[in-house]
Write a protein that binds this DNA or RNA. Structure first.
Lengths: 154, 154
DNA sequence: CTGCTAAAGTTCGACTGTCGAAATCTAAAC
DNA sequence: GTTTAGATTTCGACAGTCGAACTTTAGCAG
């Protein structure tokens, strides 16, 4: 394959990879009977441990009002528990339940392990190339997201 | 950096890359004054040329009803034109306007070019590694999306 | 032709997720 | 002890999506 063909493939594969992540998230949300926003919230809670409602608001970039209902929904299906912070009773702490951690194991662990296994196929230099590529791609993407967001409207 | 550190970085960078794509789409939608669904629809129309409402419904995985309103919104802001197919007057053809193509040039072309430039830094073998990585990652992701979607509920 | 059935979109009413503003409850400052 | 500020929730309104019913057009059987 020529270099320009490879470049074309990279562009194409990136799109497909995005779509496959999307499909995975959709499947995970469906499996848990929750929507995508709630899944993102659960991800944050599972990843960072007990978190305040305010932190969740910031992490999800939602309004405080919306975050309240997100927590309500997750609590109602038993994936999250709400407790008032003993040290500062204005705060609400949101924590993943055992059911949520079990779901995490069932859903995310297998794909994580498969990912790691797949990466063992690459040698050290190849992994460096991959990391470099991912970092560069992200930098380009962020730079242009910034440009598009700030550019004059017309 | 050790191999296991590199593997860790790959996982982390993938997450960040996803987020940066998300941020870019958000910025693009904001710039055009439309929502994310409408942006996806516009993407399809720009990419495939004139498309029927039914094809759009399939591509976006929306209901026909929702697709109608997507087209309504895009038409109202002048990014898309609706015409009845002369050959089969039940069909509605949706076509990108010149304004939409101009927006595409302003928003997407610079990032596309930057992406291509960035890829020229890699030699042939490195590009092969990158393509292989992307293809593998997608395969893993798709396989597990399938698993999660079909697995028994508990 | 005529009438019937299927196809492609649209309209309508209901529901869900999100928001801004006002309200509630708690902590801190004076 | 009253006031001010902080964290979350409640409330009313609005946008996006859906399923079901409806409209228009095509294709076909008689």
């Amino acid at each position: 394959m020529s270099k320009s063909e490879l470049v074309y493939h990279v562009a194409r594969e990136i799109r497909l990879l995005q779509q496959s992540f999307d499909a995975f998230d959709e499947a995970a949300a469906g499996r848990l009977g929750i929507n995508r926003t709630d899944l993102r919230a659960l991800d944050v809670v599972l990843g960072r441990g007990p978190v305040t409602a305010g932190e969740l608001t910031a992490a999800l970039r939602l309004s405080p009002a919306a975050t309240t209902t997100v927590i309500d929904r997750l609590e109602r299906v038993g994936l999250v528990a709400r407790t008032r912070d003993a040290a500062n009773r204005r705060r609400v702490l949101v924590e993943a339940t055992e059911a949520a951690r079990a779901a995490e194991r069932r859903i995310y662990r297998p794909v994580g392990e498969a990912g790691l296994r797949a990466l063992t196929r690459y040698d050290h230099g190849q992994l460096e190339t991959i990391v470099d590529f991912l970092t560069t791609a992200r930098a380009v993407q962020q730079e242009h997201a910034e440009r598009v967001a700030t550019e004059p409207a017309d």
